[in-house]
Write a protein that binds this DNA or RNA. Structure first.
Lengths: 231, 231
DNA sequence: GGCGATAGCTCTTGATCAAATAGTATCAGT
DNA sequence: ACTGATACTATTTGATCAAGAGCTATCGCC
């Protein structure tokens, strides 16, 4: 559950030590949202949060504003803050965008590819496969995230990485309660190795087609789920 | 100077009428930053802003937090808020990402292209050219933004559009004080018509190469400028 | 004359408070 | 019994305040 990549703007700080009450509270609420402990649409009352987290209401007001800026919560005048709802088009747009970003990262990263990096990706893919085989869904999701984040890092564009992670976390915040089918999970592991092979061969066309097929498969899944969700 | 596209989250509201003091103040400060009226690194004191804008300090604290979440200002504990500084790699990453997004939008948009849309893009390109010929730099920048934003809209991905505009505005907030060389501006107008022609012919390869060449040219320009800037 | 410590000022930060607004429940009238 | 208005409660919103941190400038010391 350790996030190897923080999408914080104040990431220049030595650690995740938030000296501010506002930063502490912001991180706590963000974790709650991304971990799915609070569901989209749920109200976030300053007084209730203040009491629960042991802070005053002031830091919470500012924390919620910051999260509003990040797009995780929405604040309506005189109505307060709620966890941002995810409608169908928002989630699919987000995933489609992330597919483009992954293709971009693979293309950029191929030029700077080393054997060490290939090995590292293979290790991450292997980790994913073993988590799936052991039936540990939560760890598998985290492993999947790590694999893709690493690919984005190899691409070398910090902003693309940041956008990607924000999208990824948002999608999975919504999806945490659901699960992929077992078949899809197995195929995902195969897709990882296929992608790595394509990268090793510097076969951009193959890599791109794998990513696009994966995109199509997940997109179908998302649309199917979101259609019977009223959100 | 009217922005045809607001990247607001609360864009669902009927108009840009901010009923909140916080929203009003947030918009004012954001405009100031994006218009270049405050320079990167400049301090944003709550009391001074409150006095100048005619609000209390409370809404300003929350507004600055929201803008921190958007990435426009950075807040250091006990030091207050400053307009976010843009270092070399940040700006170049941003621009490179935007190039990818434009290619993505052109590819998606080509399928849904109509004669009306082509005409609209031609009108926007013509507007840009006339602004350049008249030597109206500010209007030309705005026209250029409108052209590219429209292409992103034709792509149909709302999230990509949002990310694109944020990046665009951030880059130009830094660049507002500078100017393209006259030659570059002329070429930019040519590139617009070349791109439109490629789209009309459904020639994705041509469109992509134009966008990549444009990216390379602007990237050189950015790097040259940022190298002798300490930021 | 130069360097470091201390005092003072400015600004942020967290807390409390009054007013305004929205949502809810109660009550009266038909 | 059902609809409508009214009063009440809960929560946000904007303001003020005390305390703490950081910066600056003056003063003393080497």
């Amino acid at each position: 559950m350790i996030n190897i990549l923080r999408m914080e703007d104040e990431a220049t700080l030595p650690a995740d030590s938030a000296v501010n009450s506002v930063d502490q509270v912001t991180n706590l609420i963000r974790e709650d949202i991304l971990a799915g402990r609070v569901t989209p649409g749920e109200r976030l009352k300053t007084s209730e949060l203040a009491k629960r987290l042991g802070f005053s209401t002031m830091p919470l007001r500012e924390a919620l504003r910051k999260l509003e800026g990040e797009g995780l919560v929405s604040i309506e005048p005189n109505r307060g803050a709620t966890v941002r709802k995810l409608d169908s088009s928002y989630v699919t747009d987000l995933f489609e965008l992330n597919t483009e970003l992954r293709i971009f990262a693979v293309r950029s990263g191929m030029r700077k590819l080393t054997l060490e990096r290939i090995r590292e990706l293979e290790a991450l893919a292997e980790d994913y496969r073993s988590q799936i085989d052991a039936g540990r869904d939560t760890e598998a999701i985290e492993s999947n995230r790590r694999f893709n984040a690493r690919i984005m890092e190899f691409g070398g564009n910090q902003e693309a990485l940041r956008v990607f992670l924000r999208g990824w976390d948002t999608i999975f915040a919504f999806r945490r309660n659901y699960r992929y089918g077992a078949g899809r999970r197995k195929i995902m592991a195969e897709e990882m190795t296929l992608l790595i092979d394509a990268m090793r061969r510097h076969d951009m066309a193959a890599a791109e087609s794998i990513l696009r097929m994966q995109n199509a498969a997940v997109m179908d899944d998302l649309i199917a789920r979101l259609s019977h969700e009223s959100t």
